[in-house]
C-alpha cells in the first residue's frame, strides 16, 4: 500500500482513539473541574465498564446486537453506582481533600483491578460487535487515462468503527447540552464556581458531588463498552485510557471542557498516527513528557488562556 492510504487508515484508527478518549477524558475533567478531585481510579472504572459489558453480553446470549445494547445501558449504570458508592464511602469522608483523595483513589485503583482479577480472571475476553459490516475504502490513482478510483487491498474499515466515532460525538454533544441547559447542569456549574455559596443557595452540594463522580465514571464505562468489540476486555486495560485521559485533560487545561475535547481529538489522532508509523511506546513517551512540560510551563493547558 502507498503512503497516503496508509496515513488515511492511521488517521481513522486515531479518530477511534480520540472518540473513546474524549468520553473518558470528559468524565475525568468533570470530576476534577467540579469536585477538585484527581481520580486516579478513573481507568479502572473504564475497565469495569468493559468487564460488565462482557458479562452482560455473555449472560444474555441471543443476537449480538441485543447483548451489546443491554451492555450499553447496564454497564455505565452499574459503574456509575459503584463510583457514587465510592464517593460516599471514601471521598466524602476525606472532605474531598485534594492530596488525600489522590492517595485514596490510588488505593481504589488496586482494589477494583484486583477484584476484577479475582472474579473475571486474567484472560482477555471479546464482546461481539452489534453488527458486522466491512467497508472497503476507494482510493484514487492518477494514470494516463486521468483519475481512476481503485480499491487497494487492505484499505478497509468496519461500519462499527465509524459508528463508534459517531456515537462518541453524539454523547459528548449531549453532555455539553445537558450541562448548559438542564437544571442539574446549572447546579453543577454553581457548585464548580463556589461550593460554599452554592450550598448557601440551597444546592445540595454533597449530592451534586456524588452524581458528578458517578457520571464521570459512567462516561468512562460508556467509552469502554464502545471499544470492547474492537479491543478485548482485560483486567489491566485501565492503564492506557487513564494515562491518555490525564494527558488530554492536562493539555486541554484542567477542568475546561472545550479544551478537553479539542485535546482529545489532537492527542487521539496523533497517538494513532505516531503509533502506526513509529512505535506505540515512543508515542507514549512523547505524550507523557509533553504533559509534564505543559504542567510546568503552561499550567493552564496549551489552549487555556493565562490569568494571573
Amino acid at each position: 500500500m502507498d503512503f497516503a492510504p496508509h496515513l488515511f487508515l492511521a488517521t481513522l484508527e486515531g479518530a477511534i482513539t480520540a472518540a473513546v478518549i474524549s468520553l473518558t477524558a470528559v468524565g475525568l475533567s468533570l470530576v476534577f473541574g467540579i469536585m477538585r478531585v484527581v481520580n486516579v481510579a478513573h481507568g479502572e472504572f473504564f475497565m469495569l465498564g468493559a468487564v460488565v459489558a462482557w458479562w452482560v453480553a455473555s449472560t444474555l446470549g441471543g443476537h449480538a446486537a441485543l447483548g451489546f445494547l443491554a451492555a450499553l445501558i447496564i454497564a455505565p449504570l452499574f459503574v456509575g453506582l459503584m463510583a457514587a458508592l465510592a464517593d460516599r464511602l471514601v471521598l466524602e469522608r476525606l472532605n474531598y481533600d485534594l492530596e488525600r483523595t489522590i492517595v485514596a483513589t490510588i488505593g481504589l485503583l488496586y482494589v477494583i483491578q484486583q477484584v476484577a482479577l479475582m472474579t473475571f480472571g486474567p484472560d482477555a475476553r471479546p464482546v461481539e460487535a452489534p453488527f458486522d459490516l466491512r467497508i472497503a475504502i476507494p482510493w484514487f490513482e492518477f494514470s494516463d487515462t486521468g483519475v481512476n478510483l481503485i480499491w487497494p487491498w487492505g484499505l478497509a474499515t468496519t461500519g462499527y468503527k465509524l459508528a463508534v466515532i459517531a456515537a462518541a460525538a453524539i454523547i459528548v454533544t449531549s453532555i455539553i447540552v445537558f450541562l448548559k441547559r438542564s437544571r442539574f447542569g446549572l447546579m453543577m456549574r454553581a457548585t464548580q464556581m463556589d461550593s460554599e455559596m452554592a450550598s448557601a443557595f440551597g444546592i445540595p452540594v454533597r449530592r451534586v458531588y456524588c452524581v458528578v463522580f458517578g457520571l464521570g465514571a459512567a462516561l468512562a464505562a460508556l467509552g469502554a463498552v464502545l471499544i470492547v468489540p474492537i479491543q478485548q476486555a482485560h483486567y489491566l486495560m485501565g492503564g492506557d485510557p487513564l494515562l491518555l485521559s490525564f494527558i488530554v485533560v492536562i493539555i486541554g487545561g484542567l477542568g475546561s471542557l472545550p479544551g478537553t475535547i479539542l485535546a482529545a481529538v489532537l492527542i487521539g489522532m496523533s497517538d494513532g498516527i505516531i503509533s502506526v508509523f513509529f512505535s506505540p511506546t515512543l508515542a507514549k513517551i512523547l505524550a507523557t513528557l509533553l504533559v509534564a512540560l505543559v504542567l510546568i510551563f503552561r499550567p493552564h493547558g496549551l489552549f487555556g488562556h493565562h490569568t494571573s
Binding site: V90, V103, A104, I106, G107, L108, L109, Y110, V111, I112, Q113, Q114, V115, L117, M118
Partner: peptide, 11 residues
C-alpha cells in the same frame, strides 16, 4: 490478587 491488600491498606 495480592495487590488487593495494598489497595485496601491504602484506602
Amino acid at each position: 490478587a495480592h495487590l488487593l491488600v495494598v489497595g485496601l491498606a491504602i484506602v
